[in-house]
């Protein structure tokens, strides 16, 4: 239980944190890493549930190798939005596009989002992404920020999120942390739970059992990449420029890349201008 002062701490115009407050719900996920086998069915289920485009993810599974032969182990860590009690993204959003639901969900309103990506810069967990401009279904939003919703549409019908439903090892457990009879609450009382970046004071709703610090620590994750992963990362940045044009390939001169990035950004302007023009035409003449 949190003390009264912390429980009522609130950022901006959004709902205060509800963890540990009687009479409120606090939906949370516990991920038991002892049971995770790295099958990535959660990633597939999430992609299928929401039609997530290629190249972006609401949930993913990070993977590492631990130890040296013959004492080795493969470790996994599923990642998703932490639905923080005190979300930095909500605090920093300039248009109130992202907000915190009273039951703990951190949600995104596409119609308010201007695609400024402030929330992506603010999120310490990399849990947000900009939806690419091209989608198969033209009715779905593009070029606005998207994120995990904890499958609120399913939870409100008494179901669990699709990633939890799909988890073959039963590693993902979902429920109301404020309900003492829920499975997550029981796990929280008997197991040692860890969260990502607790020092930031975000109070995440996603916690882990048996987390390895090597996977949880951000700088360590960077410095201890395998050579292959480092090459893949550089290929990704070299060949898949994001909409912000800020990727720098490690080991190559920085400033020519900065100039090339600016050039790439300038080349997007005519396409965006055409989109703006089309909107005007649609609004006034059709």
């Amino acid at each position: 239980m949190q003390d009264k002062h912390e429980a009522h701490r609130s950022y901006g115009l959004q709902t205060a944190g509800s963890r540990g407050i009687a009479g409120t719900k606090r939906y949370a996920m516990v991920i038991d890493l002892r049971k995770c086998i790295g099958c990535r069915s959660c990633m597939v289920a999430c992609k299928a549930e929401f039609g997530i485009p290629l190249g972006v993810w609401r949930t993913w599974v990070k993977e590492g190798d631990k130890g040296s032969y013959p004492n080795t182990r493969r470790i996994f860590m599923p990642r998703l939005c932490n639905h923080c009690d005190y979300p930095v993204c909500v605090r920093n959003c300039p248009t109130q596009a992202t907000f915190k639901h009273k039951d703990g969900f951190v949600l995104q309103r596409y119609n308010r989002c201007i695609g400024c990506r402030t929330c992506m810069v603010a999120c310490p967990y990399n849990a947000r992404h900009l939806i690419p401009a091209k989608r198969t279904d033209k009715n779905l939003p593009t070029m606005v920020v998207d994120k995990c919703t904890f499958c609120i549409h399913r939870v409100k019908k008494g179901l669990v999120p699709s990633c939890v439903q799909a988890c073959v090892g039963g590693a993902r457990i979902f429920g109301d942390m404020n309900d003492p009879n829920s499975e997550v609450s029981k796990l929280a009382s008997k197991e040692t739970l860890t969260v990502l970046k607790p020092e930031l004071g975000t109070s995440p709703s996603v916690s882990y059992i048996g987390g390895d610090w090597e996977l949880m620590d951000e700088p360590h994750s960077y410095t201890n990449r395998s050579t292959q992963l480092k090459d893949e990362f550089n290929d990704f940045k070299r060949n898949h420029k994001g909409d912000a044009f800020g990727d720098i390939v490690e080991g190559e001169p920085t400033m020519p890349q900065v100039i090339a990035n600016m050039n790439g950004f300038l080349h997007t302007i005519p396409h965006k201008a055409k989109g703006v023009f089309d909107s005007f035409v649609n609004f006034f003449f059709k």
Binding site: M120, N126, S221, G242, F245, G246, D247
Partner: peptide, 13 residues
């Protein structure tokens, strides 16, 4: 670390 998904920089040039 042997696998991870990659992310783009949110604010660039």
């Amino acid at each position: 670390i042997t696998y991870n998904v990659f992310h783009h920089v949110a604010w660039g040039t």
